[in-house]
Design a protein around this nucleic acid. Structure first.
Lengths: 211, 211, 211, 211
DNA sequence: CAATAATCGAGACGGTACGTCGCGTCTTGGG
DNA sequence: CCCAAGACGCGACGTACCGTCTCGATTATTG
């Protein structure tokens, strides 16, 4: 993750025309580095992405990389970062549709091998770089969970869902299943979101479905 | 994976009381190596388990390690295998009880910060060490999943669970929720296994519970 | 060596009061750079004088240094040139007095620990920086030797010294002794210049002194 | 200078048959490193001797070099170390002959460019590595000075030299001249030792030579 | 007064060498 | 045949400076 990204400034340069002194960082170099990192990642996986190789292939000094990213993992994270898929706004017509919408986004994120790899990588670094992890959760994980929580709460309020639901546990079941499935089963079943939502809505016990 | 393990068993010791010539391998060394590997893994993850560090901490020569395991991953796998909690044998009295039994074991594994940390580290570094990950799944993860699968199947067969259940998806919901919870919520709620099983059994939709 | 120094003098300022257009170079910056270079040299020798460190300590951009001196050696040479004690003009009354005058200056240079350290550092690193060494000799060492040479030659011409003297060898004996003494014996004997001159004048062999 | 050389053990291995555990250091590697260093030194001087280049040319890992020498200078010192020329035993027949004998050795040491370079290098490092310098003085410099001192004292005692001689100053004149000359004048005059001794013996003042 | 032009500080650029660390292998003497 | 110790060649690590460059800002002279 770029250092600059830590600052709460959405537009780094446009603040009252001010700019940092000194020669500005080269966008060409930045693109070349990220491209080289992605190429190497595609060729030989995480292990193949060594800073020296990235620098050589990008035609860049090592310092130019370390100026931007503190280490290999952070570079990889940025390189693998395609922008997070936009969250669907729940329409509110039915709980099932709303859950499906958000879970489909999550499933398709996990289905993309690059995104999945990035996610897994991030998880692994979570222990070593708690701040990184915290930011990732705050920006990516929790917004999605919030959508699910609000859909469930709305469903309870509207009477569509039963009153006794433990919202947090239910949410963890849904998101946890996506992550667990994405980690293990390649390729992901296309209809996994549907199966998941239906299973969760119906429960396991044997009785006539009410709706 | 020990090299010896690929040889037929009788070649090792059962040759009519005969033994291989030369000095036998030291069990002390073996235990010391495994313990050192676990300690280091707990402290700094896969990356922290360098053979040199293991050898130093175990008070052992590096060759003594390589004589037994071909590489870091194989050593780690053996080391981590000693950790898995014993699986409860499902009694078969009720699906709920059987699920609770296995999920309680998993929750309590995740509740132990040391074990949880080890698990998270392993998960995260799975991408970087795919072989290690694969073997860990084969030895630790899948046996647990198999217990859940069989409980669910038995429940369907006995009529206790409804027929249409997607066993795989249901299993992923249960185990995924435990992992997701263990990763995020510290300390884990004591009754998480109960809440999870009940939520899963009942489903979310509003209708009178049948059992 | 300053670039400007290669230009004819009148091009710089004497053009009927005219000046070069643009912002003139800051004398403050120049002094700060030279001072910083000297400080760093005194602290850690030639190796310690890195342009980056000089720039930082002088509060100056690196380009401001490179605009004036083509490299480290040239900067150092200019910096060290500001240090040489002024040479005494030989009065010509007696060879002994003239030699004493110049040797006293050299001895007192070596007696000052800071100057001596600088000199020793410079000598030692001469091999690694031959250009710097050559220029230092040309600017600092040789002028002093020339004084001694001319004193000796004048002494021979006036009949004060014997005709057969090997001027070069005699000069090396005198200056070499000062350097050797300055390197080894701390603090220097106060009367070392006198002892040296007398010993050299008298020679070692046993016979009645003539003068 | 090799680390081992600091220890006061003259024979590193032969003490009571004991030997350090582990694989012994390869003499092949050591020779290859020293040869490579000398080659590079001959090709491009001190600046050309970078550890990476030495390692590559010697077909050796960098660590193998750093295991033996703490840094570039120390490696160079060892590489350039031809054994110090043996000191001539003064015959005692005449002061002039005895001085000539020892000074000729010193002059020929300085005349050899490799030895001279090594000496100059060492001097330069003296400030940075005082212990190294001290050992060098103790082992090489002082023994030579002692020879000169004793020759001078014997000359005074025998009446060959005048009584008032300042032995230390005279010694510094002789040795200092050799060093100063060796540093500046390449190639050294072949008869420099003779000229030096004669000049010192006769002195500078004009009077009939006594002997 | 405005335009021009050189210098200022700051700092990024592509490089090179540094000294360290861990890898997996090899080589000792001794149990 | 195993053990501990530790050296081996290798290669990536992250750092420090090199000498060059590119910024916006500053400061004189010139038109």
């Amino acid at each position: 993750m770029r250092e600059a990204a830590v600052l709460p400034v959405q537009d780094e340069e446009a603040r009252s025309g001010g700019r940092k002194p000194g020669r500005p960082r080269s966008e060409r170099a930045e693109r070349a580095i990220l491209d080289a990192a992605l190429e190497l990642f595609g060729e030989s996986g995480v292990a193949g992405v060594c800073i020296e190789a990235v620098a050589t292939r990008a035609g860049v000094g090592k310092a130019t990389i370390y100026r931007r990213w503190p280490g290999k993992q952070d570079l990889l994270l940025d390189a693998l970062s395609t922008l997070k898929s936009p969250l669907p706004e729940p329409h509110g017509e039915s709980v099932r549709d709303d859950l499906l919408a958000i879970l489909r986004v999550m499933v398709s994120d996990m289905a993309d091998p690059v995104r999945a790899r990035r996610f897994t990588l991030l998880l692994g670094e979570g222990e070593a770089h708690p701040l990184l992890m915290a930011r990732y959760k705050e920006r990516v994980v929790e917004p999605r969970r919030d959508v699910i929580r609000s859909v469930l709460r709305r469903g309870i309020a509207s009477g569509e869902l039963r009153r006794g639901i433990d919202v947090e546990t239910a949410m963890l079941m849904l998101t946890g299943a996506v992550v667990a499935c994405g980690r293990d089963i390649r390729p992901l079943p296309e209809d996994f979101a549907e199966r998941l939502v239906d299973e969760a809505l119906l429960g396991l016990v044997h009785r006539p479905a009410v709706r």
